[in-house]
Each structure stands twice: as structure tokens, then as C-alpha cells.
Amino acid sequence: MKTQLFDALKVSVLAVVISFGLSYAFAWTAPTATPPTGNVSAPINTGAGLQTKYGNLTVANLGTNSIIVSGSATINDVYITSIGKWASELYPVNLVNGQHTVSQCSGLGGSSVDIGGGNKLCKFASASCPVGWAKYGNWSTTSNTNVNYKLNTVNGDIRGKCKSEYRVCSSGSHIFSNTTKETVVCQTWDKNEWCQDNEYASATAVITETGCY
């Protein structure tokens, strides 16, 4: 009896080992090229040898003694420590109407925005422009405003009975564009001979960003 149990146990263990071996064999992927080709690319390291990265590389801060650009490069601005100036100060890019520059815009905490036709505006995160600057058209960003108001309306079919309903008047909003600030007047046409005391409300959006020049 013990011999039969031992033989059965050996068969079970052997079956488990074979099943694991087959699963690994089927999961294994053959090389796509003959070694040593097809290897994983070497990582960027601290060695002194020349290294080339073919994909994009993003870094938070980059310190270097020199940079050689063999193709084209897009750079927002460059600070030249030897003269204590930004490159945009040497070759200023004017905003619309030519009264201020992109560099002056960024110096005040604004951001330049291309509005088409080769024109740029300075977008400030405020409802007005800094001193010495002017708002350009209706360029702005707004946020929605909600105003609660009460409506007296007929209470079912009961003549002479009114009930109050509270509603919300929403102004609406828009993203940065040449759009006027929204103002909405919320009214109701539920007037009748019993319920005349309706309250009306108006909601005006809040300007959060302004386009200046």
C-alpha cells in the first residue's frame, strides 16, 4: 500500500514539474536577430565617451558648458549670464500695436498668446491690465457665476394659492477669446392673477484672465 502511494506521489510531482517546464518553454520568445545584434540600447551614463540618444529627452534642469545643435531647436527664451540679459531683450518680439514686448510681458508674470495674423497679446491672470498697459478688445477668460432666486408660482390647481420655488441663475463662461463678459437675466413667464410677486435675478460672469498690450 505504501509503495502504491509513493509511486502515485512520484507521478504527481513529475507531472507538476513537466507542466511548469512546458509553460516556460511556450512563454519563451526567441531572439529577433543573431547575437550580438538586437541588444537593448545602452543607458545614458556618466562616462566620458560620446553618447547618442535617438528618442526624445526631457529634463527638469540642464547644466552644461556648451551645447551643439546640429538641427533646429525651439526655445522659449535664453538667459545670457555674461551680459545679464535675456535673448528676447536683444531681439525683442513686439506685442500687438508695438507698445510692449513679449519679454516685458513675461517680466510682469504674463504669458504671450498668438491671436492670429502674426499678432501676440499678453495674458494676465487678473480682471484688469497692469498700469501702463491696455486691454485689447474683449480678450478674456471668465468663470461662471450662480445666483439663487425665488419664484412664486401656482400651487397645483388650487386657485389663489402660491408656492415658492428656488432656482439658480447661471451666467455661463468662456475660455480665452475675444468674447464679451456674460450677463444673464433670469426671468419667468409664470405670472398669473394670483402670483404676481416674482423675483428676477441677473448673473454676471467673473473675468479671471485679461488680454493686454
Score class of each variant (00 low, 15 high):
Asn97Gln: 15
Gly211Ala: 04
Val113Ala: 04
Asn198Cys: 00
Cys162Ser: 06
Ser140Lys: 14
Glu193Gly: 00
Asp7Phe: 12
Ile75Thr: 01
Asn138Gln: 14
Asn45Trp: 09
Asn192Ile: 05
Thr210Ala: 05
Ile207Cys: 10
Asp190Glu: 11
Ile44Arg: 15
Pro43Thr: 04
Ala201Gly: 06
Val184Gln: 08
Ala205Pro: 07
Asn39Gly: 15
Val93Leu: 14
Gln196His: 04
Asn76Ala: 10
Ser173Trp: 05
Trp189Glu: 01
Leu121Trp: 00
Gly156Tyr: 14
Ile80Ser: 06
Ala201Arg: 05
Lys163Tyr: 07
Thr204Gln: 11
Val13Ile: 03
Lys85His: 11
Tyr200Glu: 08
Gly47Pro: 06
Gly71Ile: 02
Asn192Leu: 02
Gly117Asp: 08
Ala48Glu: 10
Trp189Asn: 04
Ala134Cys: 11
Leu9Asp: 01
Asn65Asp: 11
Leu5Tyr: 10
Thr34Val: 10
Leu62Gln: 04
Thr3Ile: 13
Gly109Asn: 02
Thr188Ser: 09
Thr183Asn: 03
Gly63Asp: 11
Asn61Arg: 12
Ile175Tyr: 02
Val59Met: 15
Gly49Tyr: 14
Asn148Tyr: 13
Gln104Phe: 15
Thr180Lys: 15
Asn45Arg: 13
Gly116Ser: 07
Val131Trp: 07
Asn119Val: 00
Tyr149Glu: 00
Val11Pro: 04
Leu108Asp: 01
Ala15His: 08
Cys162Leu: 10
Val147Thr: 01
Glu199Asp: 05
Ala30Val: 08
Tyr149Ser: 01
Ser111Met: 07
Cys122Ile: 00
